[in-house]
Amino acid sequence: MKVEAVIDRFTEQRQAVVLAETIGKEFFIDQAKLPEGAVRGDYLNLELDKNDQVVNIVINQEKTMERKKSVQAKLAQLRQKSTGSKFRRD
């Protein structure tokens, strides 16, 4: 089975916490098994076996870039609306 997932965070044990929201599962994957250059926030295409064990991982570049652009656009929009702090400096 193939599922889409996102790298949520990295643990102190050098594992990536990967969330597959479509199937409601969380995977702990050794950083060494991730594709080279994978970072927090990257979207992945996971291939799972019958026992829901990860057998193949590929970075979904298109989805990752789409999400990063979306976040950047939202941040820019928030910055435009900002009128500065309501607190005065003495």
Rank of each mutant, 00 (worst) to 15 (best):
M1N: 01
V3F: 08
E4K: 14
A5V: 02
V6M: 10
I7D: 00
I7W: 00
D8P: 00
R9A: 10
R9M: 03
F10H: 09
E12R: 11
E12N: 11
R14G: 02
Q15L: 08
V17F: 01
V17S: 09
V17E: 12
V17I: 15
V18P: 05
L19D: 11
L19N: 08
A20S: 15
E21W: 02
T22C: 04
T22I: 07
T22A: 14
I23Q: 08
G24V: 03
G24A: 03
K25D: 06
K25A: 05
K25S: 02
E26P: 04
E26I: 15
F27A: 01
F27H: 05
F28E: 10
I29V: 15
I29G: 09
D30H: 09
A32L: 10
A32W: 01
K33Q: 09
L34R: 02
P35M: 02
E36C: 07
A38K: 04
V39I: 12
V39L: 03
R40Y: 01
Y43T: 03
Y43I: 06
Y43L: 07
N45L: 08
N45I: 02
L46D: 08
E47D: 15
L48A: 03
L48Q: 11
D49F: 04
K50M: 01
N51R: 15
N51V: 05
V54K: 00
V54S: 06
V55R: 08
V55A: 00
N56P: 00
I57K: 06
V58I: 11
V58E: 14
I59V: 15
I59C: 05
N60H: 10
Q61A: 07
M65G: 04
E66G: 03
R67G: 01
S70A: 14
V71D: 06
Q72Y: 10
A73T: 08
A73C: 05
K74E: 14
K74Q: 13
L75C: 05
L75F: 07
A76D: 13
Q77K: 15
R79N: 12
Q80N: 13
Q80H: 11
Q80F: 05
K81I: 09
K81H: 05
S82V: 02
S82F: 13
T83I: 11
T83A: 11
T83L: 14
T83R: 14
K86I: 11
F87V: 15
F87M: 12
R89E: 12
R89G: 04
D90P: 14
D90G: 13
